[in-house]
Nucleic acid binder design. Structure first.
Lengths: 104, 104
DNA sequence: TGACATACCTCGGAATTCGATGTATTATGT
DNA sequence: ACATAATACATCGAATTCCGAGGTATGTCA
């Protein structure tokens, strides 16, 4: 379904626009890509835990619409990693397009 | 090193520009992407065998510079699969760029 | 009261790729 | 002449990445 390896980038980017809980990230990726991209829950949560362990995001509890939710925000290291991965994405996608003979 | 899932697309595309043997495909992907993309040999040959088994490419023996080489050419089904995968690539990469807030 | 969306989670397995390793030939430099 | 690199093909095991299926629980709407 997805271009493999791009999910951490997408997740970090969504969190760079503001803290969110897991399920909200899911919906943001779907809507923000006009339904083209989709992340399965069984994929998202393990990645979230991994990003947290690596210090790229941090979790905090927050009450959203009367219920306790596990929210995440980007750390400074996460911001740097986001920049790094975004640059890498541009580099690779440009290279593929170059090879395929298309523009940019 | 590579965006996962894109290698069959790249290989099919290279073969669409003319028949080649494995090692030549390798170099074509490297040079055609200005060194950004690279395929390990341990990755290429299994994919080649898989594509052949699926009828997307066909092998033939040819003498290249005095030595017998195993060359591959695209089949009709391979051409269709290439079109399909190229369209999918454009669709997904556009969606990622859309989400990341960039153009196209 | 049933269905559906929200919200979180784990597990097993499939797919994809790389690195290491092996073999053999040809070209290039010294 | 000899060593080294490039060419050329191949297999294997391991790592990474992702999905689907399943589980739990609450809120909302008809």
């Amino acid at each position: 379904m997805n271009i493999k390896g791009s999910l951490p980038l997408l997740i970090l980017h969504v969190l760079s626009t503001g803290p969110r809980h897991g399920y909200a990230i899911l919906k943001e990726i779907r809507q923000g890509s006009e339904g083209v991209l989709g992340v399965a829950e069984g994929t998202l949560y393990p990645i979230l835990h991994d990003l947290e362990q690596r210090g790229l995001i941090e979790a905090f509890e927050e009450t959203v619409s009367g219920r306790l939710r596990r929210c995440y925000r980007l750390t400074e290291a996460g911001r740097r990693e986001l920049d790094r991965q975004a640059a890498e994405w541009r580099r690779y996608s440009r290279a593929v397009n170059l090879l395929l003979g298309g523009a940019s």
